[in-house]
């Protein structure tokens, strides 16, 4: 079932078309990734979803109803650029953020203390934010995002700046929240990360959605003509070969794209004939990164101004 539907969203700032006819749906109990480069229109789309910006046209439906200020109470938003009031204490900060969401009282206090306990910050309740380490500030920010028990979470790179132990802790909490039926959106430009965490993705480029769907389906669709392989030897003879469309070197692996899926066996034969030492030859695999480069890479160049 679609929890959130974004329909034909458009937004311009003066001459700049930041978001252009964006449509996607988010289903219950899923992790959704909105991916794209910096300035592609992710933030603007999210801001419209949060009702921070009013769209020029199009609409956003939450369980079939347009989003409004009350919808904000049901959302936990961790923006890419975060911040806290430096001079407030940890507990005051948490209670303030819950209060703006309309949640106050002893329940919230209790819940704040529980989260602090969980994140190993129970002894820092009266510490000022400015006296916390950056990692701890991140944790406080995350608690502030989920303290009011939102139905819908928007997280932008939540793991940056966290050590491995806290990363696991956070991952565990996110999965807990997903299992409780919360909808989670990741907006990121890190493809590896999106690939690991997301069930669904939408890729946005220059304000337009260029790819949208279930991650596994997309992979199957794009993997058909793709080979990912590890080898040693010189494969430069492949350049200019009529069956090859492109070759991408990703460091550890090399991605080869064929003009036609039926040529896979021919390619393998070609490599064996040239005595290339093949360590891995995966004919049905493509990383999200490769898909992204494939779709957006060629058009790279003009960075959109961040508004």
């Amino acid at each position: 079932m679609n929890v959130l539907e974004v329909k034909r969203l458009c937004k311009s700032f003066g001459p700049i078309k930041a978001v252009d006819d964006v449509t996607f749906n988010i289903t219950e109990g899923s992790v959704f990734g909105l991916i794209g480069r910096n300035g592609a229109g992710k933030t603007t789309t999210l801001r419209m979803m949060m009702n921070i910006y009013t769209p020029d046209s199009g609409e956003i439906l939450f369980y079939g109803k347009p989003v409004d200020n009350d919808f904000k109470k049901k959302v936990g938003y961790l923006p890419e650029e975060r911040g806290l009031y430096k001079k407030m204490t940890v507990l005051d900060t948490l209670l303030f953020f819950a209060d703006v969401k309309g949640k106050s009282g002893n329940d919230i206090k209790k819940s704040a203390n529980e989260y602090l306990e969980k994140f190993d910050l129970a002894d820092r309740k009266t510490t000022k934010i400015q006296d916390l380490s950056k990692g701890n500030q991140q944790k406080i920010q995350f608690i502030a995002t989920i303290l009011h028990d939102p139905e819908f979470l928007v997280l932008d790179e939540p793991f940056s700046g966290l050590d491995p132990i806290n990363t696991d802790l956070l991952r565990q909490i996110i999965i807990e929240l997903r299992d409780k039926g919360k909808v989670i959106i990741f907006s990121t430009h890190l493809m590896d990360f999106a690939e690991k965490m997301c069930d669904y993705i939408s890729m946005i480029e220059h304000g337009k959605i260029i790819l949208d769907g279930k991650l596994s389906d997309l992979k199957t669709k794009y993997a058909k003509r793709n080979i990912s392989m590890n080898y040693s030897g010189d494969i430069s003879f492949l350049k200019g070969n009529p069956i090859i469309e492109s070759i991408e070197d990703f460091g550890n692996t090399t991605g080869i794209r064929l003009k036609d899926a039926s040529q896979i066996q021919n390619l393998l034969k070609l490599l064996v004939d040239k005595k290339i030492d093949i360590k891995k030859f995966d004919a049905n695999d493509i990383s999200l990164h490769e898909i992204f480069v494939l779709l957006a890479g060629n058009k790279a160049g003009k960075e959109v101004q961040n508004v």
């Binding site: 009702n51 200020n69 904000k72 109470k73 975060r82 911040g83 953020f97 703006v100 928007v154």
Partner: peptide, 18 residues
């Protein structure tokens, strides 16, 4: 300026309007 500089404003705007 501090709110803007600290980027706290966007967190707050996800809860209240400007």
């Amino acid at each position: 300026v501090e709110e803007k500089n600290n980027r706290i404003v966007e967190v707050i705007l996800s809860s209240v309007n400007s």
